Computed example of a mutant assay.
Amino acid sequence: MKIRRAVIPVAGKGTRFLPATKEVPKEMIPIINLPMIHYVVEEAILSGIEQVVFITSSGKNAIEDYFDRKFELEDFLIKNGKLKELELVQQIGKMVEVTSIRQKEQLGLGHAVLCAKDIVGNEPFAVILGDEIVRGPNPVTKQLIDVSTKNNNANVIGVMEIDPQETYKYGIVKGNFTDAQKKTMRMTTMVEKPKPADAPSNLATPGRYVFRPEIFDALKVIPKGVGGEYQLTDAINLLAKEGEVYAHIFEGARFDTGNIEGYLNATIEFALMNKDSEEMMRRLIKEKVQKYNIR
């Protein structure tokens, strides 16, 4: 069955970016001239997604507004002959169908996904975290959809290899590979943020999933977990016990823009990958290295 919807949780308060996020949603902070959330939604569209479901909270209206038409701005650009800029903002307004659901309490990622149940209905869907950007020639969500299709529309989790000493930052999976390339495994368990000595592997999930609607049944019965929140990890483990969950090592460069270091890294990388800004960024880096005597 075709996957038409992607659920994108964006209800977090973005405290690592205060005071900027006092009034501006973290997901709207720009990397070069596009907000973080633009890159995430673009990945969804390139993966064949037709509708994006944002799980939002108070003060997040700017995210939905960004993907809407703004006729006052378009009229201003027309009157001032700014046709290139006009085309750009019109394209954003037509990118994808957008729906928002308010998560009134911050009760964890599992609860955020469950909030989308009535809109998603009885169809498979993708989940993409709003502060995790993955760049590559083949969109990571599309990679997971392909793996799901090959395995009878199974649940699939995107994973990446990490430094074994950093397992405490992620959900870590364990399973058995099902292909000769050792890219896809049948998952047996996932452990949330284990210490390196307790981690079952070095395969971590940075927030890309494809689920069958049965995930909602699992989310309804799990108790509160780590941090007093409903953990998506617990629901995934329940699915793995009762059915099939696959973990796929995706291809692409991942950027965690939910923290300052990851945001700065993405800004530099994206500028260097863009032909319009590459020369400028190289010049600025060279000037700063010389100015501050960086070795």
Score class of each variant (00 low, 15 high):
residue 29 I to T: 04
residue 58 S to F: 03
residue 72 E to F: 00
residue 42 E to Q: 11
residue 249 I to T: 10
residue 24 V to R: 12
residue 92 I to N: 01
residue 67 F to R: 03
residue 10 V to Y: 00
residue 245 V to H: 02
residue 68 D to R: 14
residue 102 R to D: 13
residue 122 N to E: 15
residue 290 Q to F: 01
residue 166 E to T: 07
residue 27 E to K: 06
residue 86 L to H: 01
residue 132 E to P: 07
residue 134 V to C: 12
residue 171 G to I: 06
residue 197 A to V: 14
residue 55 I to C: 13
residue 256 D to P: 09
residue 196 P to D: 08
residue 287 E to A: 14
residue 110 G to P: 12
residue 137 P to Q: 12
residue 226 V to H: 01
residue 222 I to E: 03
residue 20 A to G: 07
residue 95 M to K: 12
residue 292 Y to T: 05
residue 208 R to H: 04
residue 113 V to H: 09
residue 289 V to W: 09
residue 147 V to W: 09
residue 152 N to P: 02
residue 77 L to S: 03
residue 228 G to K: 02
residue 210 V to C: 13
residue 99 T to S: 07
residue 270 F to C: 03
residue 209 Y to I: 06
residue 2 K to I: 07
residue 177 F to M: 13
residue 165 Q to L: 14
residue 62 A to C: 04
residue 138 N to M: 15
residue 107 L to C: 02
residue 101 I to M: 15
residue 82 K to E: 05
residue 186 R to H: 01
residue 160 M to R: 14
residue 65 D to A: 07
residue 213 P to D: 04
residue 273 M to T: 11
residue 109 L to M: 15
residue 146 D to E: 15
residue 100 S to K: 08
residue 212 R to M: 11
residue 265 N to K: 14
residue 292 Y to K: 02
residue 132 E to V: 12
residue 155 N to G: 09
residue 46 L to D: 15
residue 175 G to R: 03
residue 90 Q to L: 08
residue 42 E to M: 10
residue 222 I to Y: 00
residue 2 K to C: 06
residue 272 L to K: 10
residue 223 P to T: 00
residue 213 P to G: 02
residue 190 M to V: 09
residue 262 G to A: 14
residue 140 V to Q: 06
residue 18 L to F: 11
residue 284 L to H: 14
residue 21 T to E: 01
residue 257 T to W: 02
residue 170 Y to A: 07
residue 235 A to I: 03
residue 3 I to H: 03
residue 258 G to Y: 03
residue 55 I to L: 12
residue 166 E to A: 02
residue 146 D to K: 12
residue 68 D to G: 04
residue 71 F to R: 03
residue 191 V to E: 12
residue 157 I to Q: 07
residue 229 E to V: 00
residue 95 M to G: 01
residue 101 I to T: 15
residue 172 I to E: 11
residue 205 T to Y: 03
residue 291 K to R: 11
residue 244 E to R: 01
residue 230 Y to C: 00
residue 21 T to S: 02
residue 77 L to G: 02
residue 41 V to I: 09
residue 185 M to R: 06
residue 249 I to A: 10
residue 106 Q to W: 06
residue 198 D to T: 10
residue 279 E to C: 03
residue 29 I to N: 04
residue 128 I to K: 14
residue 255 F to Y: 10
residue 7 V to P: 03
residue 11 A to K: 01
residue 182 K to Q: 12
residue 90 Q to F: 01
residue 128 I to S: 13
residue 271 A to S: 12
residue 12 G to Y: 00
residue 252 G to K: 08
residue 241 K to L: 03
residue 44 A to N: 09
residue 155 N to K: 06
residue 185 M to E: 11
